[in-house]
Design a protein around this nucleic acid. Sequence first.
DNA 1: AATCTCATGTAATGGGTTACATGATTTT
DNA 2: AAAATCATGTAACCCATTACATGAGATT
Lengths: 187, 187
Amino acid sequence: MKENTGKSKYVVLGMLARMPQTGYTIKKWIENEYSHFWQESFGQIYPTLKKLVAEGLAVSFEDSETGKGRGRIVYSITDAGRKVLLDWLCKEPEIEKLRYEILLKVSFGENTEPEVLLGHLDDFIKRNENLIKDMNGYIEHFDLLKAQGTDCTYSQLTALSGVYMYSAMRDWAVKAKNVISGKEDDL
Amino acid sequence: MKENTGKSKYVVLGMLARMPQTGYTIKKWIENEYSHFWQESFGQIYPTLKKLVAEGLAVSFEDSETGKGRGRIVYSITDAGRKVLLDWLCKEPEIEKLRYEILLKVSFGENTEPEVLLGHLDDFIKRNENLIKDMNGYIEHFDLLKAQGTDCTYSQLTALSGVYMYSAMRDWAVKAKNVISGKEDDL
DNA sequence: AATCTCATGTAATGGGTTACATGATTTT
DNA sequence: AAAATCATGTAACCCATTACATGAGATT
């Protein structure tokens, strides 16, 4: 039998380490604050939660009295779960495999008119600019929480990575536009 | 039946648009110059090539006289293939879904000692620094080709994106190290 | 002689998204 | 009353990697 190399397990475990919560809130959290470097679907989260319980890494209890939805299931991490999370944290992170479709299109740019790429790059710049704003919003939000005594240094650092990443891609796209449209010769 | 949303088809088509070549050389090319934004395995490339021929987007001929290996199969793009490639190039690129395991670990940093993350960040910085060197090497190489009259602006631009991307991640990691080790308070 | 690179291919497995099914509560 | 959000879950499908199988030629 093969070792499970999937990471969903650890993401869910990490989320439960923060606070006991439901599959739904885990999804929302990842969607909001992790989107620039991670994503998980319900199709991964719910089965993963069940597996965690089966392996003794989490426990669940049904929260029926609140009457929200059709019975929320709140999961909590166990000591065994914390140990598994810690072991994973200590292992060297795997090298990331990225897939930027826009870079693929740029690399095949000779097969089309420059205007096509310039259009894609414009959209890309706008998108990155909006994402930088979002990320800066999160950073400010974490500053507020910090002022109230909540430590969120690590979350703030990941938001900061978004600012760096999106800014770099925006700057590159601006440069690429100038080169493609002939405004600049040199890189 | 579902539309094929996979991109391997277009990558292979784009490679064939550059020059007729074998599955093996396509793989090597992607490995060398595309690794920072794309990757394909033989398990994808060879079946894709066969499908392209079946769909009339490429043609193949066996290159047995050279006697290299056990009969190379050289593929060329057809006019129909060029049309499919062009259509794809004009479509808006999909939003990239990235997965940075190191950012995941940083975000769960409160569950471990700072030293663990500092170690990961050190490795990450070194790795990015090497990649920046590689990318700058490619850019210089393309400058040489340019001086010889070969236009490779688009390939050079994708290499440049690597420099921007890796530099941003390196800079972020240096900042993160300073914040985690307490040398810096503010972001 | 052994190993590396060139070269092609398939099968098994794993990982992940999407679509679908269901239904209550909250907001408009 | 309708729409959005909260909430859980499964099945089908697709995408991709890995392992395996094969073998020639070049290099060490």
